[in-house]
């Protein structure tokens, strides 16, 4: 079987730099990814805990603020391979496209994980486009 490969994308009406500030910060994933209840960061090792109770260790593979690309790999034994990629692409000075891609073996895990990524993009957009007062609050 081939890898599972799923891509979700969303246009956010905020400058790419603003979005990257949140989406590209490995320590802030739990702020915009629904269902992540805990996060620790130790160098390039990040560990998240999800609402279902599972703890997922991750290796950060790429964190490139110039290209605005963040890439990580879940290292749970159930994965033979996993790669999660977040790209923040400027569309114009006030808008950007955020692409969240998941590749995995076993392929079904790509679908399981990417469902969370889809909801995360919606939440990221909600937060980034919220009025300033709500963002501050």
């Amino acid at each position: 079987m081939t890898l599972g490969s799923i891509r979700h994308e969303i246009v956010i009406n905020r400058p790419a730099a603003d979005v990257w500030k949140l989406a590209g910060d490995p320590a802030r994933l739990h702020e915009w990814f629904p269902g992540i209840t805990g996060l620790t960061l130790d160098g390039n090792r990040r560990t998240i805990t999800v609402a279902g109770g599972l703890t997922m260790p991750e290796d950060i593979v790429i964190n490139d603020p110039s290209a605005r690309r963040f890439e990580y790999s879940i290292t749970l034994p159930i994965f033979t391979f996993h790669r999660g990629m977040i790209d923040v692409i400027e569309l114009d000075p006030d808008r950007c496209l955020v692409v969240y891609s998941t590749e995995a073996d076993p392929r079904t895990m790509a679908l399981v994980i990417s469902g969370g990524c889809y909801r995360a993009l919606q939440e990221l957009k909600r937060q980034m486009e919220a009025p300033i007062e709500e963002t501050v609050a």
């Binding site: 999800v50 609402a51 279902g52 399981v112 469902g115």
Partner: peptide, 13 residues
């Protein structure tokens, strides 16, 4: 709602 739901996104779970 989906059953495979590690992020507990769905009320049924």
């Amino acid at each position: 709602e989906p059953f495979l739901d590690p992020f507990a996104a769905f009320a049924e779970n």
